[in-house]
Design a protein around this nucleic acid. Structure first.
Length: 279
DNA sequence: AGCATTACCCGCACGC
DNA sequence: TGCGTGCGGGTAATGC
């Protein structure tokens, strides 16, 4: 479940907890289980396991699509890539038995309490880091699109310092951090922009429309707790709000034209050919 | 030369 | 049963 709104949903749940689970911050790591070595990006898996023992998790934050856990020393960082979840859960059953990892759990942090945090990653593309300096992982990441620092003027700068197809540009994490395939398609529909429009061809007015579309779509995604698709269900509802994504051949809600699907930058792209003219 | 774009890769589950 | 597809991103090759 991996674009900005989904990661934000996961982080909020981990940070604040709920009726079923306590917050993650405050917990101290007692032991670490790694069931798929390549899930550990840095350092090597054995060092990762050893170094984390005794570390206390101080907070749970998001940066782009990364989950960021500042520790009392150093930082634990995770990226889910194409699938997965981070769960806080009981590690011991009511009869005192230690619970085995769930299917596709790649890394498990056992806390000194009876809880654990599990990095679940079906497709094994996700990665975790332990680093002294979080910037070593986040270096080069683009601006947070929901931050006050992100402005329409700033977006205009980004668009006009490149001559690229608008869709891959919006998904470039080095420029804007957090947009993925779904939210970009939905954003471009709201802004009435064709995914192949060249970035530096956008007028100031089009840029402002795009700016507001980005913020509205991401905020709506967060409000709906993300989107749930196929077997990667997470309880989000944004999929019910899709205007174009996965609606190929269906009628545009605005004009009735059939939604089209094309490949842009190796990714499927859905748009209304009438509402989003290439010009 | 320096961008932008395309190709390929990485595990797995699912639908047709 | 087999094949195409995919809420991502890194690297390498190719194109302009």
């Amino acid at each position: 479940m991996p674009e900005l709104p989904e990661v934000e949903t996961i982080i909020q749940r981990l940070k604040h907890g709920n009726q079923d689970q306590p917050p993650v911050p405050g917990n101290i790591i007692q032991s670490v289980l790694v069931t798929w070595d390549r899930s550990i990006a840095e350092p090597d898996p054995r060092s990762f396991q050893r170094i984390l023992v005794g570390k206390q998790i101080m907070d749970a934050c998001r940066r782009g699509k990364y989950l960021h856990f500042p520790l009392d020393r150093g930082h634990l960082i995770a990226h889910l890539r194409m699938s997965g979840d981070m769960r806080m859960e009981k590690s011991i059953s009511s009869d005192g038995a230690h619970l085995p990892p769930a299917e596709h759990d790649r890394v498990i942090l056992n806390f000194t309490t009876s809880y654990r945090m599990a990095f679940n990653n079906i497709r094994k593309f996700g990665r975790m880091w332990y680093v002294e300096d979080a910037q070593s992982v986040f270096l080069g990441l683009g601006i947070e699109p929901l931050s006050d620092q992100f402005t329409a003027q700033g977006l205009f700068e980004i668009l006009h310092t490149h001559n690229r197809q608008i869709k891959p540009l919006l998904m470039d994490q080095k420029l804007i951090a957090g947009m993925g395939n779904i939210y970009t398609d939905e954003t471009l529909f709201r802004a009435r922009l064709h995914p192949l429009r060249k970035s530096d061809s956008l007028s100031l007015q089009e840029t402002e429309d795009l700016y507001h579309a980005i913020r509205e779509v991401l905020n709506e995604g967060i409000r709906q707790f993300g989107a749930s698709l196929d077997w990667v269900y997470r309880g989000g509802q944004f999929q019910n709000t899709f205007k174009v994504y996965q609606r190929e051949g269906e009628s545009c809600f605005e004009c009735g034209t059939a939604v089209e699907k094309i490949i842009v930058g190796q990714r499927s792209s859905h748009f209304c050919p009438n509402c989003q003219k290439r010009q």
